[in-house]
Design a binder for these strands. Structure first.
Lengths: 188, 188
DNA sequence: ACTCATCGTGCACTGAGTGCACGATAGCCC
DNA sequence: GGGCTATCGTGCACTCAGTGCACGATGAGT
């Protein structure tokens, strides 16, 4: 991949999401995007490897946000609690972007699969961060814990009504993270 | 979608997977597949909506297998245990196909995302089956339980060395399902 | 002025996926 | 047997995604 300027990245992203929010993902071609952004087709693919990428690629600013959020977690905090708080903080910070993305995805079922990639970024970071903490957990335990948190989140985000906004999402997250840690729920 | 004959379905599937096992997914075009199967390009797309579909679409025989496996679960069995046993039985039954698929996917990283769809089919069935059982669980509890099981499975399948075969996979599944249900693992 | 890195562009090409109309075969009914 | 119909494979033309490559504009350093 060639080098990329952050301004062009934003320009393409904003043009594309704008069009897709209006017409839906499938009704917008790459040519439409490049026309709206005033760039060439080839430049588009210098920035985004595929049509979906313009929705799902990480914001260049993301690593900075993640560093900030993890730095705020106290040292001795149990991992489960920390993950709970991190996901609240992350969804709060990226709120507007998330809601916009969810609307486009919801309107175009063919995108449902790809949407997982967005979450994966978060959980990959979480995994790396958790592994760097002082803990007695084995690799397998860590993976299971992270993936269970991921499962809790994906469960509630599937039930989330986008119109309730981030507060509605947070209420569901709290409920799920509490349920999973309760001792009796697996005897169902 | 037009009507389809099971023989043609199998013919295309087998030709495609054969080629992909040899050369890798990306190096096989739809034209290669249709040439190998002795059918036309258009017929291919009458059977499979996309190139990946030939790997990931459910075997027409799958519903029968699923019905058989769930019928074998005793009525009062805790859901977690039942899911544990179901996934052992399913991976045992579909073993050869799974190993073959995993090899192709492992050799072509661009397919990693799509591979989730295969698992989704299993867990969708599991969810529907669990909802039909007599249980005091709420919808949210059921979803969380299913998705936690899914997380446990996806954790171990990511760590699975395909060359250890289905027995190796089963050992990992047993370990994970035991760990997750143990009371202390979330205090890490 | 020269050089070099950066980054946008034009073009030609491959391959995925679709809409549509046609054709071959096989069963069925009179 | 002749005509009807459902099934299912096929050929063709087309759109759009994605790539390799060479060129061009700009701007900074010397």
């Amino acid at each position: 991949m060639r080098q990329r300027s952050p301004q062009t990245w934003r320009l393409i992203r904003d043009s594309a999401v704008g069009l897709m929010a209006d017409r839906g993902f499938d009704a917008v071609s790459v040519d439409d995007i490049t026309a709206a952004a005033g760039i060439s087709r080839r430049t588009y693919f210098n920035y985004f490897a595929a049509k979906e990428s313009v929705l799902f690629d990480p914001d260049p600013d993301d690593p900075r946000l993640w560093a900030e959020l993890t730095a705020a977690r106290p040292a001795g905090e149990p991992l489960w609690t920390a993950l709970h708080q991190l996901i609240l903080a992350y969804t709060a910070a990226a709120g507007a972007e998330i809601v916009r993305q969810c609307r486009v995805i919801a309107a175009s079922p063919s995108l449902a699969v790809c949407s997982r990639e967005t979450c994966d970024r978060f959980w990959d970071c979480a995994r790396a961060w958790a592994a760097g903490r002082d803990t007695a957990a084995t690799d397998l335990q860590l993976d299971l814990l992270i993936n269970t948190a991921r499962a809790a989140f994906s469960t509630v985000s599937a039930r989330w009504d986008v119109d309730t906004g981030i507060p509605g999402l947070h209420a569901l997250i709290d409920e799920a993270f509490t349920l999973v840690i309760s001792p009796e729920w697996k005897k169902l």
